[in-house]
Nucleic acid binder design. Structure first.
Lengths: 123, 123
DNA sequence: TAAACAGTTGAACAATTATTCAACTATTGG
DNA sequence: CCAATAGTTGAATAATTGTTCAACTGTTTA
């Protein structure tokens, strides 16, 4: 995200436990997979966008109602909804000039629930 | 995250479906809860940090091995590990000058697995 | 057809953040 | 105790990103 600049990594770390590193390297997902996964979680990582999803957890809603509920501009909501649509996190249906948004599938609800669990019982 | 500046929201959205908005407002979690939840997901939302967690999913590791495996500086790893420790996502044990890190609990694994599921079957 | 209005778009900007560097601390082995 | 080394810290910086504004598109209804 930031400063991937300096190409000559001056402080390249030495491997200490070669056996472990070898095993991890073999079982680690492809970089591309991690990047896509991170992009998914990033969508849950902004409180406005997360709250937008939490709204849709309660009821399908149109853009202006979402904007009013969350106290942000309709443009802001539109930008967020676009990102959520691309990631297949929300679905929508048009009714005249109004577009109603809804959560796309159960994964979203499960991810939200799992996160809440961790917050509640930090043990 | 950015430009919460302009205090006089010029484009304040009008509520269209008052009944829905009222219901959503009642069932929506407290703002503080959403903020904390977003902060949790944010930790999964960077590919380096996510990959670090995926390493620990395979085996407990020390900082230098993590740095070498992920191709970043030990300082970078240390910064990430600190954030993950504060959020109770990783645990550690010291053995001499080496500190071994591990995933804190099953929530982490479940959240990662849930995310992967969504990526794999996009519908 | 024109006015009204829900939603979109992209540029601009403020804020956040991921990373590195350099210097530091802490722990062990000789 | 001193040297070596794993890890930490904070400042600096590049990059990303969330939000708004202003102008636009598309749909409806008067």
């Amino acid at each position: 995200m930031a400063k991937p600049s300096n190409p000559s990594a001056q402080t390249l770390a030495e491997i200490i436990h070669q056996d472990v590193v070898t095993q991890v390297q073999q079982e680690l997902p492809a970089v591309d997979t991690s990047v896509k996964l991170a992009e998914l979680f990033k969508l849950f990582g902004d409180s406005t966008r997360l709250r937008l999803l939490q709204c849709l957890l309660v009821h399908e809603m149109c853009g202006l109602d979402l904007a009013a509920t969350l106290g942000v501009s309709k443009s802001c909501i539109s930008h967020h909804l676009r990102a959520l649509k691309i990631a297949n996190l929300v679905r929508f249906r048009r009714e005249g000039q109004i577009i109603f948004y809804d959560l796309a599938d159960d994964h979203v609800k499960q991810i939200l629930a799992m996160g809440l669990e961790h917050i509640i019982e930090p043990q």
